[in-house]
Simulated scan of single mutants.
Amino acid sequence: MNPAHPYISNVLGYTTLFASADLIQQSVLGGKPAAGSTSEDSTVIDWCQTARVATVGFCFHANFNYHWLRGLERMLPGGGVNAVTGKVVVDQLIAAPLTISAFYIGLSFLENKEDLFEDWRQKFWTSYKVHVILMARLNFALVPPVARTVFLGGIALAFTIFLCHLRQQRDHKLE
């Protein structure tokens, strides 16, 4: 990341991570088989789906997380036990529900789904539980403030792969 332009670097990096997560999810965890293919090794990438995931990452997640982490550090500075505990609690009570909701509702909006909240209602709690375990504990306890946005982006890659995969589960069961 370019320290001279941290906002731009973080937003573009985060958007790339979201697009990469969807591509990994499609190619490794469950892309659609190519037409006429009998092998699961031959999948077709849904580039429109990847563009939608990248759009949600760019329009909401990248911007929100950049500003959220900076604000959280100003509100609860330092790495002591009390500061870290406070950051984890506030992050999990405010940011986690917002970002998970934005993911599901944003994608449903971009897909022009009639019920924008269907995926959210079905998958929010599972996603939230995984988020609590994966994201919060590591980010504030082990990573210095200057590296948190980048680190969060890396963890977000893994979590977004999980979200993309979980979101596609209903679609594949209907086929």
Rank of each mutant, 00 (worst) to 15 (best):
46 D>V: 01
100 I>V: 14
47 W>T: 01
105 I>E: 02
74 R>P: 00
43 T>K: 15
146 V>E: 14
132 V>D: 00
147 A>E: 02
104 Y>K: 08
109 F>S: 05
21 A>R: 08
106 G>W: 09
28 V>N: 10
137 R>A: 05
20 S>F: 13
122 Q>M: 09
92 Q>L: 05
71 G>N: 12
107 L>V: 03
61 H>E: 06
15 T>H: 09
102 A>G: 11
62 A>Q: 06
5 H>P: 00
6 P>Y: 14
167 R>W: 09
56 V>T: 13
122 Q>L: 13
129 K>I: 12
169 Q>K: 11
137 R>Y: 09
101 S>E: 01
126 T>M: 07
8 I>N: 02
48 C>T: 12
163 L>T: 01
77 P>C: 08
40 E>A: 12
51 A>V: 06
162 F>P: 08
168 Q>A: 15
101 S>N: 03
35 A>V: 10
117 F>Y: 12
169 Q>G: 09
46 D>Y: 01
73 E>F: 11
174 L>S: 12
146 V>C: 03
158 A>R: 02
16 T>H: 10
165 H>V: 01
33 P>L: 08
11 V>Y: 11
80 G>C: 11
124 F>L: 06
114 E>C: 05
114 E>K: 15
18 F>M: 07
125 W>C: 02
11 V>H: 10
23 L>K: 05
71 G>R: 12
7 Y>L: 13
170 R>G: 04
120 W>P: 02
75 M>Y: 13
139 N>M: 15
68 W>C: 00
10 N>V: 01
56 V>M: 07
121 R>T: 03
134 L>N: 07
33 P>V: 04
138 L>P: 00
21 A>N: 12
75 M>Q: 12
52 R>A: 02
